[in-house]
């Protein structure tokens, strides 16, 4: 059995007296897409930067691709592609020049560079824009270039901090396809605030206050939470939501299009919930259905005090 790609035991990162990471335990054995999720300020960006070898950290054990993060990481960085939250390529260089610049830093042979570049430009749809300066690209194209740039030296680990933030829905789908393709050759670790992306990850790490609060496949996390979810359909959805919030076991109720999403806590009998929701005072409910718990309810339950 080969060594794990990532193995962290009691990883800590302090900024002065504040512990941004307060003892992270994490082992990842195989290539997959790992999503780091959790509330604002939980330590997501710090963890990603630590994995990319960008921080001095304390730990009982901290190896990434077999290299100890507490020692010399110069060699390790050649095998990591890192895409930070804000665009950090050269705006006055063209798409082609940016990729060439990165390839030279990695001492890629010209023939290998041309082969990788051609493939990445085709995969990202950036080929027609190879001679455009990065600063003139749209937000989605900039992000695709940043990812292509991180992939040009064929890294074994790709780390991306909110790669799809602020990108339109079409570009977001294209970026996700790139990440799914990258998974064949690399471990992909990313943070995201989008629920659909979290649900599409192979594995999720839920961080809170610098610690791993929960980890597993999206299905495992869903199965572990004790919430239940219902939809109540009716005409005046805002009135239904207000009335539903008055029920003692309802944690959240929000008018959502033609129905009200009702999050239920404390495992009341489903028959009772159905009866109560059908008979909400002052709000005509036409149909109530129980739903499988989704990513929104899962993350909501995990963030409950």
């Amino acid at each position: 059995m080969s060594a794990p790609l990532i193995r962290l035991r009691r990883l800590e990162k302090r900024y002065g007296r504040r512990r941004a990471l307060a003892g992270i335990d994490l082992t990842i054995d195989e290539r997959q897409i790992v999503g780091v999720v959790g509330p604002d300020g939980a330590g997501k960006t710090t963890l990603l930067r630590a994995l990319a070898g960008l921080l001095v950290v304390d730990a009982e054990e901290a190896t990434v691709l077999g290299t100890d993060l507490r020692g010399d990481v110069t060699e390790l960085k050649a095998h990591i592609g890192y895409v930070p939250q804000s665009f950090s390529l050269h705006r006055d260089l063209t798409v082609d020049e940016n990729l060439r610049f990165t390839a030279r830093l990695h001492r890629l042979a010209e023939a290998e560079f041309v082969r990788r570049k051609t493939e990445l430009l085709a995969r990202t749809g950036l080929a027609p824009f190879a001679d455009r300066t990065a600063g003139q690209l749209s937000g989605g194209m900039k992000q695709k270039l940043a990812i292509a740039n991180a992939l040009v030296a064929a890294p074994a680990l790709l780390v991306l901090d909110e790669p799809t933030a602020g990108v339109d829905v079409v570009a977001r789908a294209e970026i996700w396809t790139m990440l799914v393709q990258a998974r064949t050759d690399a471990l992909v670790v990313l943070s995201t605030s989008y629920l659909d992306e979290a649900a599409a990850c192979d594995r999720l790490i839920y961080l809170e206050a610098g610690r791993v609060r929960a980890a597993g496949t999206p299905a495992e996390l869903r199965a572990a939470v004790s919430s239940a979810l219902y939809r109540a359909w009716g005409d005046d959805v805002r009135a239904i939501a207000r009335a539903a919030r008055a029920l003692p076991y309802v944690q959240a109720a929000r008018a959502t299009g033609r129905f009200v999403r009702v999050e239920v806590h404390g495992a009341p009998e489903p028959a009772r919930v159905l009866r109560d929701l059908e008979a909400l005072p002052g709000a005509a409910v036409r149909l109530v259905e129980p739903l499988p718990v989704d990513m929104e309810s899962t993350l909501l339950a995990l963030s409950s005090p």
Binding site: G38, P39, D40, G166, S193, A252, L300
Partner: peptide, 10 residues
């Protein structure tokens, strides 16, 4: 709601 977690968004 940019940069805000799912509970606060709700």
């Amino acid at each position: 709601t940019a940069g805000v977690d799912v509970r606060s968004r709700g």
